[in-house]
Simulated scan of single mutants.
Amino acid sequence: MKPRDIALAVAVAAVWGVNFVVIDIGLDHFPPLLFSALRFLLAAFPAVLFVGRPPARWRWVIAVALALGVTKFSLLFAGMAAGMPAGLSSLVLQSQAVFTMVFAVLLLRERPGRRQLAGLAVAALGIGVVAVRLGGGGLPAGAFGLVLGAAVAWGLSNVATRRAAPTDMLRFMVWVSAVAAAPLAVLSLLVEGPAADLAALRAIDPAAAGVLIFVALVATLAGFGAWGALIRRYGATTVAPFSMLVPVFGIASAALVLGEPVHLTDVAGGVLVVGGVLLGALRPGRPVDTRAPAAGPLDRVAA
């Protein structure tokens, strides 16, 4: 990769890592479901009016919108609102690679190699090490379960994205956002209530507006657009490992900005999760197919 593109890949990973801190701040302004609905609404409009038709079949746009936009982000935001630390959330979400492989075997009949299976086992062990702090260790079990459920939903959406094989990841994400916004808004009204939603909307200040702009336009549209361009240029095998920097930036920024403590078990579990994902992703000696569809960005990225 050219130095300029390496810098771009690192910058995207940094944005996605810092995004967890921004989400944590946003949850002080909005109920979780409303926050997610506003994120996708802003990511979709007015962009959806100018990007043309979806670059994939509608059934896959809807499937990814429900799995990724509605389920994954609802669970993630709810988990963080319930007390899951921002930095640790960025790490636990990387377990989506494990669930992606499981769903790919069950639904796509893929056959993982020994290296991938070993990586899956190592990553799963890492999540187990992180989970040691549940309950008595200051980590809410329910919040941890919600974020882990978000990783499961992300894995399912990865499989749907692979089947969709969108030719333009940015345009695909705009349409996914457009489809996801409406059911999230309805869920917010039903679960969080019109009064809470209206109060949050009335209380929007520059800080809340900045949070929405960052998560919708910077992390979602600009981030996926740049990542998709790198995937098309170099192939998923070359670019995807850079996403392992996301929890590094996530944990570091959460410690610096939010003052979140970093526990030894978090570090040990993080090394195992990242190492396991990389073990399964890196395939020495195999040429990179730069013609691979731009579905790769959803395989190993953050919120």
Rank of each mutant, 00 (worst) to 15 (best):
I204Q: 06
A292H: 05
L108E: 06
E110I: 10
G113E: 13
G155P: 08
L170Y: 02
A200P: 06
V130Q: 04
G135Q: 11
I6N: 04
L221I: 13
A281V: 15
A182H: 01
V271Y: 11
D28K: 15
R109G: 03
L264C: 07
A303K: 02
R109L: 10
P241A: 12
W227V: 03
T220V: 12
M244C: 15
L184M: 08
F144C: 05
N158S: 14
P284F: 11
L212D: 08
D299A: 15
V274N: 08
G113R: 09
M101E: 05
F35W: 11
R115K: 12
P293M: 03
A65D: 04
A292M: 07
Q94G: 02
A165Y: 03
G17C: 04
F144E: 02
L272K: 13
G193W: 02
A82Q: 13
G87R: 12
L282S: 00
G259M: 12
L217K: 05
M80P: 03
G280P: 08
A13I: 04
V301P: 00
R57S: 09
R202V: 14
R111K: 14
V102R: 10
A124I: 08
L264N: 08
L34P: 00
W58N: 07
W227R: 02
A151N: 04
V21K: 03
S74D: 06
K72H: 15
A229M: 11
E110D: 13
L258W: 05
A123P: 11
A200C: 12
R53H: 08
G52E: 07
L8V: 14
V211N: 09
A281F: 11
V51A: 09
V64H: 02
A295R: 00
T167L: 09
W58S: 12
A254W: 02
F214E: 06
V218L: 11
A207C: 01
V186E: 07
R53M: 06
H263V: 06
A236D: 07
A153W: 05
G87Y: 09
G223I: 05
F45K: 01
T237H: 11
L117N: 13
G210Q: 15
L134A: 08
G149K: 05
M244R: 04
F144Y: 10
G142H: 12
G135A: 14
P32K: 00
P241R: 06
R4H: 09
A292R: 01
R232D: 14
A222K: 01
A200N: 04
L38C: 06
A207D: 10
I62M: 03
A195L: 09
I213T: 13
R162H: 01
A141L: 12
A295P: 01
A65N: 00
A199Q: 14
L91E: 04
V262H: 08
D299R: 15
G235S: 13
H263F: 15
R4F: 09
V273W: 11
G26W: 01
A199W: 08
R114S: 11
A208C: 13
D197M: 15
D266C: 02
E192L: 11
L76Y: 02
L66S: 03
V271S: 12
